[in-house]
């Protein structure tokens, strides 16, 4: 029993990171119908920037994160303007291919600028909490707290604020929202900026807890989309539930079934959901 609880605890941390990535993807998809596949790699760029600012410039971690989120904000807007907007009216496949191209560019740029070696963002959180037979590192504890805080803030913002209302209106019925005076290009910018900031936050967590290396961003984007398929496209609660389920499934699969095939098992879960509920666990019928 302790082992099961420990595995769930192990999976929650990475699951939380999946949620942050998936939230960014799901809002972009909801508003623009774009699969922003480059999200993972561009987020990792933010993570690299934090690493650079902290280790080379001696900046405190919190400031570095703010600076990187700013960079993510600008990049997000630039990507939308330069790459996605020109193909907005073409077939959605074109937007996806542009997204693939952006991913390659971002991965290549990260490789060129920051090298192939893995990097770890230094923190001085070294202690470990032990509750009975359960263990949780201080770092993981804070990351879980921070993730929960970000998810809560994001949900409240979307549900309660006026801008959030406009975002939801746009996602539900684009034309009606435009007729009601919603400023599409402002909301689009905002959504890209918001998702990029969440992405950078996720990248910093990955970088502090594990490592940032070539391919990590791409892998996260794939996991993020798996979460969306699992939870339901464009659904915010779906992204939260799906992310946690994916994280915990992976940990349980590695712990009790097979560590070599844990990703395959997590993927099979997604396929089963797809066969039984093609719209995802919390998605609505279209």
């Amino acid at each position: 029993m302790v082992e099961v609880l420990q595995q769930i605890l192990n999976g929650l941390t990475i699951g939380g990171v999946y949620v942050l990535i998936a939230l960014g993807l799901t809002t972009v998809f909801g508003i623009l119908g774009i699969s922003h596949f480059a999200h993972g790699s561009i987020s990792m760029f933010g993570g690299y920037v934090v690493f650079y600012l902290v280790t080379q410039q001696g900046m405190p971690l919190a400031f570095a994160c703010l600076a990187a989120m700013g960079a993510g904000f600008v990049l997000g807007i630039a990507v939308e303007r330069l790459a996605y907007r020109p193909v907005r009216d073409a077939s959605p496949i074109n937007a996806f291919i542009v997204a693939l191209g952006l991913t390659m560019i971002a991965e290549g740029a990260n490789l060129q600028l920051f090298g192939a070696d893995q990097i770890v963002i230094p923190t001085n959180l070294q202690s470990v909490f032990r509750i009975g037979a359960l263990t949780l590192t201080e770092l993981r504890f804070y990351i879980i707290l921070l993730t929960a805080g970000l998810i809560l803030a994001m949900t409240l913002y979307i549900q309660r604020s006026k801008t959030g209302y406009a975002i939801r209106a746009l996602a539900q019925n684009r034309n009606a929202a435009i007729l009601m005076g919603v400023n599409v290009s402002r909301i689009t910018m905002l959504v890209f900026a918001m998702s990029s900031m969440l992405g950078v936050a996720a990248a910093v967590m990955i970088g502090a807890l594990f490592a940032i290396a070539p391919g990590v961003g791409e892998g996260l984007a794939i996991k993020g989309f798996s979460v969306l398929i699992l939870g339901g496209l464009g659904s915010i609660p779906g992204a939260i539930v799906g992310g946690l389920i994916l994280g915990v499934t992976e940990a349980l699969a590695a712990g009790f079934l097979s560590s070599a095939y844990k990703d395959v098992i997590a993927f099979l879960v997604m396929i089963i959901v797809l066969l039984v509920r093609p719209q995802g666990l919390l998605g609505k019928h279209s």
Partner: peptide, 16 residues
């Protein structure tokens, strides 16, 4: 227990 080239979270395997 196995880990992949890109795996960095070994806690599931180590818990086992």
């Amino acid at each position: 227990e196995a880990f992949g080239l890109r795996d960095r979270d070994m806690t599931p395997q180590l818990t086992k």
